[in-house]
Amino acid sequence: MEKINVLDFERSVIAEYTSDIEFLKFLEKNGKKELNLDYSKVELKELEDEDLDTLGEETVLDYLEEVASITLTNEIEGEDFVVQNLPVVASIAFNYLREGVAYLDVVQEGTMGLIKGIEAYKGEIHGDFDNYKNYWIVREMVLFIESKINDIKNEFKSFFKDKRENFGKTKEEESDKSEVYLTEEDLLPNLEAIDKREKLMEKTMDFFALKNRLSKRQIDVLNYYFGFGVDRRYSTFEIEEKLGLNKGDGEVIFEQALLILSTMEGKMFL
């Protein structure tokens, strides 16, 4: 079967397929090709303990446990069909936990993509549904992250514009105190520094420049632990054997990954 690599598909989504109509045309031609969910070429770095200083929320673990408890059956329809495919959404979302986005938001967008895929699916045109739904799930996650990046980028642009326009000016406050926008003590001491920081922002805040907050090893541990894409749920001891980890590492990696998943949004550094 002819394949489309997911990383190439991401670029196509952002460049050409933001419209549902155009995306449906793409799927009529390519829907039967396998979407190869290979993220091995993405540079993934495990965060250090000092990076994990943001408070988490228990709702992520609750959600994953609920999804992991879904019993898969062959004869399903309607709402149940969406529910049966939630583990796939949860698993794919591990690969789209980019800096600046929250895991459950990514899952929500992927679920909307799943629903769209179910509604648009035509077997004779699109082939295997298990492959077809991945196109929709990935596409919605990519578009969500791209939109989020653009929103944050616009906030930064407004900030730099304000700093540039008010460089060196003093703003009188009601308390008779004054706020100096930029002086020698500031991190942006001159207009050149402002321009340089803005260019760095433009370069850094790009979908393909953002790092995923989970490493491949963390993603593998999560998938085995919750039973996503494998035959059953595995204990941390079994995961250590499967992945060739040292004794005790499985639990540590799982806890770190869960903490990363549970932070509301990742930090964005310039």
Rank of each mutant, 00 (worst) to 15 (best):
L64A: 02
E57A: 11
S175L: 12
E66P: 09
F167G: 04
E66Q: 13
N85V: 09
F159V: 05
D130F: 11
K133F: 01
I145C: 04
E66Y: 14
D51Y: 03
D162Q: 09
E146C: 08
K153T: 03
K169H: 09
F94A: 07
K153N: 05
T111M: 09
D53I: 10
T111D: 06
E79H: 09
I149L: 07
I92W: 03
W136C: 00
D162I: 15
R139W: 11
E65K: 15
G110S: 04
S158T: 12
I92P: 02
A120M: 08
G110L: 11
K153F: 10
E173P: 06
E58A: 11
L114I: 03
V67E: 01
T54F: 15
S91N: 10
I145Y: 01
G113P: 10
E173M: 15
L52Y: 12
D151Y: 10
G100R: 07
F129R: 03
Y121G: 01
E173C: 13
A68I: 08
G100H: 03
Q108W: 14
V107T: 04
N150D: 14
R98E: 05
M141I: 11
D53P: 08
E174C: 10
E50S: 14
H126D: 11
S147A: 10
E173L: 15
T73N: 13
V82L: 09
G168E: 03
Y135I: 11
P87H: 06
G117M: 05
N154E: 14
K161H: 13
S158A: 12
T170D: 02
E77L: 13
M141G: 05
A90S: 13
L143V: 06
L143T: 02
E50W: 12
M141C: 09
L55I: 15
E172A: 05
E109V: 12
D80T: 12
L143N: 04
R164C: 09
E165N: 15
Y63E: 14
L64N: 00
V67Q: 02
N154P: 07
N74T: 12
F144L: 07
V83Y: 10
L52N: 08
A102M: 06
S91Q: 04
N134A: 06
S158M: 10
E50C: 12
K161C: 08
E77M: 13
G127C: 01
R98I: 04
T170A: 11
Y103M: 12
R98Q: 14
Y121D: 00
M141T: 06
V101L: 05
K157G: 04
N166L: 14
R139T: 06
Y121K: 06
V107W: 04
T71H: 06
K163Y: 10
V82D: 03
G78V: 05
T73G: 05
G113E: 07
I137D: 05
I145Q: 00
E173V: 13
E75G: 12
V138W: 08
I76G: 09
D53W: 11
M141D: 01
Y132A: 02
K153S: 06
A120D: 13
V106I: 15
L55N: 13
E146Q: 10
E65F: 07
L114M: 11
K133W: 03
D162H: 14
